[in-house]
Design a binder for these strands. Structure first.
Length: 189
DNA sequence: AACTGTCGCGAAG
DNA sequence: CTTCGCGACAGTT
């Protein structure tokens, strides 16, 4: 449970604090943590949408990446249960379609959202280049595409691992190139 | 102002 | 023919 103090009003009347109103906004997050082979996957969601996913070889870095502290309480969530099942199936080589997960994208720029949307159009098992994505969003800012993909809050669901260099090189991956290789290997079967 | 997961060209081996 | 270095590119934080 994440508690954010929104506003604290203190009204000074007649020389002393006589009316103190406190409004607290409580945000509830559900947390999923699972390990598939050597890779840890963490995901958080709010009441209706996924908020962030993180991949790592080290469990500890999940929580920093998700921007939560690790000993928060966990609440069950049907969304995360579905995600957990899908991820396990995906890991066992099933061609899972992650397209219809509700994602919280409201905080991101139009450009970022269009890059991610086009990334989601790359079919399972196929790859496209950063340049290809750039064409789709009408820019020659290839590096800008890379920058936005590096900020991808939903790895696997937004399959940025399917985006590689135009010359066939792998490019990069924010969670580490080994994880990118691993995901591509899973999809090659 | 600095950063990024790029691209493509020219020069060198 | 392959590899390397470098400058241009564009959008974000």
């Amino acid at each position: 449970m994440k508690i954010r103090l929104r506003t604290i009003f203190q009204e000074k009347l007649n020389g002393h604090y006589s009316n103190c109103r406190i409004r607290v906004k409580i945000k509830m997050f559900s947390l999923l943590v699972l390990k598939l082979d050597s890779i840890w996957i963490g995901a958080i969601c709010n009441k209706e949408k996924l908020v962030r996913i993180s991949l790592s070889f080290k469990k500890e870095s999940l929580f920093a990446d998700l921007r939560i502290s690790k000993d928060k309480e966990r609440y069950s969530s049907s969304l995360l249960e579905r995600l957990r099942d899908d991820l396990i199936d995906y890991w066992h080589l099933k061609k899972i379609n992650f397209d219809n997960y509700p994602l919280k994208l409201s905080d991101y720029s139009y450009f970022a959202k269009s890059v991610w949307k086009n990334t989601q159009r790359i079919p399972y098992g196929e790859v496209r280049s950063y340049k290809w994505i750039a064409h789709k969003v009408n820019t020659r800012g290839y590096r800008a595409v890379g920058r936005v993909l590096s900020l991808n809050p939903f790895p696997i669901i937004i399959p940025c691992h399917r985006v590689i260099r135009n010359d066939g090189g792998l490019g990069g991956f924010s969670a580490g190139i080994e994880i990118k290789k691993r995901l591509l290997k899973i999809e090659k079967n």
